[in-house]
């Protein structure tokens, strides 16, 4: 019995190592950005609600795995753009392409409100994110893993009503990530959180993005959040992309560093000068 156990163990170990080897090498050699994110091409995108033309021709290419922040005054159309990318509203004209076939579970959205089911325990809420895979054998395990990724493994059996605002939003992030999306659309997900929770959530968001390499599109009204997180900041004015700013600062970024503060200042002045013109 003893010997049998001893001989069989290394074999299974080898087998599992062999099957995971290709993935492991990718993770080690380069950031997985190129492998799991989807590129995004938007051509001549237009959208109006009644007589109100919200988007007036957006052309945009986002390489796979890029973290893009979209800023602008309220009502500029940034949330509408995000909803169109996520497929929540119908496009009037133009196109959005993801460079190939996409499954619904490849694109996930996170809203300003956590939108958790109050009558489902935390773990069950995360399982909702599996979409059609909810009934599969490993649903529990995958949901538990996603919950651990957002640091809430110990809250799995709680009701959402006992969680703090930041914890609820982390559960919502776990739910969005559990299906391993290739595009994550974030509609001001940290807008309702207090300043400190916000900063820790930004760190969490950056970490999971670096780990999983999805393409992230973050709509925010907070320019400092945009420059702290994004590779690239788009400023939207009157339904068009007015500025496209690349943020080259190295990661992990120092919050409040002179480089970021300078960028933030110049983007803010863009936004404010647009205000003066109108």
């Amino acid at each position: 019995m003893q010997t049998a156990l001893r001989t069989s163990l290394p074999e299974t170990e080898l087998a599992s190592r062999a099957s995971f080897a290709p993935h492991a090498r990718v993770v080690r050699e380069e950031r997985p950005v190129q492998t799991s994110g989807l590129p995004l091409s938007i051509r001549g995108l237009r959208k109006s609600f009644g007589s109100n033309e919200v988007l007036r021709g957006i052309d945009l290419h986002i390489p796979a795995g890029q973290f893009v922040a979209i800023v602008g005054k309220s009502g500029c159309g940034k949330s509408t753009l995000l909803r169109l990318i996520a497929g929540l509203d119908k496009i009037d004209a133009g196109s959005i392409g993801f460079g190939g076939d996409v499954q619904p579970a490849d694109i996930r959205v996170m809203f300003q409100e956590p939108r958790l089911l109050p009558w489902a325990r935390v773990l069950a809420n995360v399982e909702v994110g599996l979409g059609r895979d909810r009934a599969s054998q490993d649903a529990h395990a995958r949901a538990e893993k996603a919950l651990a990724e957002v640091g809430l493994a110990d809250k799995r059996d709680q009701w959402p009503s006992v969680l703090s605002g930041g914890q609820k939003q982390r559960v919502a992030l776990g739910r969005a990530l559990v299906s391993r999306p290739r595009v994550l659309a974030l509609d001001e997900p940290l807008g309702a959180l207090d300043a400190l929770t916000r900063i820790s959530m930004q760190r969490l968001l950056e970490r999971v993005w670096r780990d999983q390499g999805f393409t992230a599109i973050l709509v925010t009204h907070d320019v400092s959040e945009a420059v702290a997180l994004a590779d690239r900041v788009l400023v939207i004015e009157e339904g068009r992309i007015a500025h496209d700013v690349v943020v080259n600062a190295a990661r992990p970024r120092q919050r409040g560093s002179a480089e970021l503060a300078g960028l933030e200042g110049s983007i803010l002045s863009h936004l404010l000068s647009a205000d003066d013109r109108t």
Binding site: A86, L88, P104, A105, R108, V109, F111, R115, L117, V128, G129, G131, R132, R175
Partner: peptide, 9 residues
Amino acid sequence: LIEMGRIYG
């Protein structure tokens, strides 16, 4: 919540 349910298939 209904919109959320639809998004998640």
